[in-house]
């Protein structure tokens, strides 16, 4: 290991007090003999009360990374990590009972797209109540049950949705139900996988702002996956950029925007006005690859992250 790599490794390494710390997370799909890597050696951490923005083209492994943290990868996925901790809990070593208990009380999730995530034969209210019932009891249970309507109001939903079935709600309403569920038990970390993809641009911004103020109020950290660089600039404290399963750049939002170092990031930032829709990011990557000007990410597939300035890492030659 070179001196530069060693330096990088220690600097990306977790600090005490991180809500989430991950080292060399590797996920691949398929059989042992025909494994297709989806996340390669992801190393990053999320601090208390921090919003970590996660950006990357379609298929770069963002959702896979989220599911790996939740320990909910499908059976055909293979997951390894040198370290994956939520606070002081080792997520890789936790058994089913421990995982069940920490899911939602300490770690919640807003799924990408809300199609079919709610049980079609249960009213929305029941799905709130069973979430509460399986994690609380007594006075605490009553207290949280009493808060359901307030939380819903926070995402601009009328209490009437509680008595409806999922198929009676629009995609955007379902997504807002999921956001309300995610903040209900006031977890330490919320993983929001494109939490507003089903909303129009206006309500997107508004709901994201609600989510982020609710997050601030309960003091949760958040991994916010999204493609709208303008929104990320506004809400994220730090941003990580993924390309083909690995982080190509991680840094404070300001540094990423003012001094992007990796060519892929530079394209993302350069194209901000046009990156509003999720397709644009992939389009951008494709253009980058077509240009093949020697500065694209694919030309340097295996570079490790190096610290380029305080807390700012990029997978580039120094």
């Amino acid at each position: 290991m070179s001196a530069a790599q060693l330096h990088a490794a220690t600097a990306v390494a977790p600090q005490a007090g991180d809500v989430l710390s991950i080292e060399n997370l590797r996920v691949s799909y398929g059989s042992r003999f025909n494994a297709v890597p989806a996340v390669r050696n992801a190393t990053f951490s999320v601090a208390r009360d921090e919003v970590f923005g996660l950006v990357g083209e379609s298929g770069s492994g963002k959702s896979t990374l989220s599911m790996a943290i939740l320990r909910l990868l499908p059976a055909q996925a293979h997951c390894e990590a040198d370290r994956m901790r939520l606070g002081d809990t080792d997520l890789m070593a936790a058994g089913p009972a421990a995982l069940r208990q920490l899911r939602w009380t300490r770690l919640s999730y807003i799924p990408q797209g809300s199609m079919g995530v709610l049980n079609p034969v249960m009213r929305v209210r029941e799905q709130f109540l069973d979430t509460i019932a399986d994690h609380t009891q007594g006075a605490q249970r009553r207290e949280i049950e009493g808060r359901i309507e307030t939380v819903l109001a926070g995402v601009n939903l009328r209490p009437a949705v509680l008595d409806q079935f999922p198929h009676e709600l629009s995609g955007g309403m379902k997504q807002r139900v999921c956001i309300a569920l995610a903040i209900l038990l006031e977890p330490e970390l919320i993983i929001a996988d494109e939490p507003t993809s089903a909303l129009d641009v206006v309500s997107q911004r508004q709901v994201l702002e609600t989510l982020s103020s609710a997050r601030r109020r309960i003091g949760a950290s958040m991994i916010m996956i999204g493609h709208d660089m303008a929104l990320q600039a506004q809400l994220a404290d730090r941003i990580g950029i993924m390309f083909a399963g690995r982080f190509v750049e991680i840094g404070p939002t300001r540094a990423i925007f003012e001094a992007p170092r990796h060519p892929y990031t530079q394209r993302l930032i350069g194209a901000i006005p046009s990156i509003r829709r999720r397709q644009d990011i992939g389009e951008l990557a494709r253009r980058g690859l077509e240009h093949a000007d020697g500065a694209t990410a694919s030309a340097h597939p295996d570079l490790p992250l190096r610290e380029v300035s305080a807390g700012h890492f990029a997978a580039i030659e120094l």
């Binding site: 069940r100 208990q101 899911r103 919640s108 079919g116 079609p120 249960m122 069973d130 979430t131 399986d134």
Partner: peptide, 19 residues
């Protein structure tokens, strides 16, 4: 997805099974 989402919510196994 509703099964995955029920798991993510940390619901009890028996509830996920039956309901």
């Amino acid at each position: 997805s509703y099964l995955m989402y029920a798991r993510a919510r940390g619901l009890r196994d028996r509830r996920i099974f039956m309901r």
